[in-house]
Design a protein around this nucleic acid. Structure first.
Lengths: 150, 150
DNA sequence: ACTTGAAGTTCCTTAAAGGAACTCCAATGG
DNA sequence: CCATTGGAGTTCCTTTAAGGAACTTCAAGT
């Protein structure tokens, strides 16, 4: 297939998709977040084609989401999240919350999240960074910003 | 291409990707959230192929994210978000926040979000649904849940 | 010198995206 | 009443990305 690229659109959602929107990319990020940092471990865990994994890792490194970090005298390296990549994990946590609620079914959620601050099994909730009240789909007006298309 | 489908994995992130992970799907959701509810309007706004738009809309209706709603005596209908779809917009808001911070550059964010509760231009922040403290990548432990793979 | 292991490359097959033209069908309108 | 319009798809062909298995490279170890 030929795929339209979204990065040039005046939309932060489209631009974000250009960074992690390709197939497998969020799962690669998830695995690295969970501590799988090496090529072969990622490949084995995901069952992804080595070719595609190479492409995705290169792209994520190019975008500043991951960094290569040597771990041996030999030319060996691990992939680690940058700050930019770590903040992107917010996206995964929201996906997990939604999937846990709407797709887990009888069996219940496959993974539980224990929050360090309170020690409880919990999930994320979206709040307004300004006032702290809930901030969901119906709680906002959309206005053109400075970077809007002309 | 032949694409691996993620829905059978014991992972809410993978399952969520099976619902909105295909190319264009998040942008279709964004447009419908923003009030573009008809086939031709979506097609024109996105520049997407009519064939792919048809496929995506069918999939999103099948998954219970969108519903078709007639708006005329003629066989005409609009696409609207269900509750399940509306909650999925959380994902878009987090994508927008991240993209605004990391990808907007000099020009600034293309869209601003005014929060109804406080009236301020703001953005989302992830909080623990239990204690209300920030809940990001490093603030949680992952534990196997009841739906974990055997 | 031979093997091992990590990290890719190559190459071929299959399927999905792009794109333009075409269909269908109910109303409108001269 | 026959032709036109407009919304909502379908068809069909081309291009390109994903799957998958085999192959390469290079530095250590034995």
């Amino acid at each position: 297939m030929q795929r339209t690229h979204f990065g040039d659109m005046a939309c932060s959602i489209a631009r974000t998709l250009d960074v992690i929107g390709e197939p497998w990319s969020p799962l690669i990020l998830r695995d690295i977040w969970a501590g799988l940092n090496r090529f072969d471990h990622l490949q084995a865990d995901l069952g992804i084609s080595r070719k595609v994994l190479t492409e995705r890792l290169n792209h994520l490194v190019d975008q500043g989401i991951l960094e290569r970090r040597p771990y041996d005298n030999r030319p060996r390296h691990e992939y680690h999240l940058t700050l930019k990549g770590t903040e992107l994990v917010d996206l995964l946590m929201v996906m997990a919350s939604w999937g846990d609620k709407w797709l887990a079914g009888q069996a219940g959620p496959p993974v539980l999240y224990r929050h360090h601050a309170c020690g409880e099994i919990s999930r994320t909730d979206l709040r307004c960074a300004h006032c702290g009240q809930p901030m969901h789909a119906g709680d906002v007006d959309l206005l053109p910003g400075p970077g809007a298309a002309t």
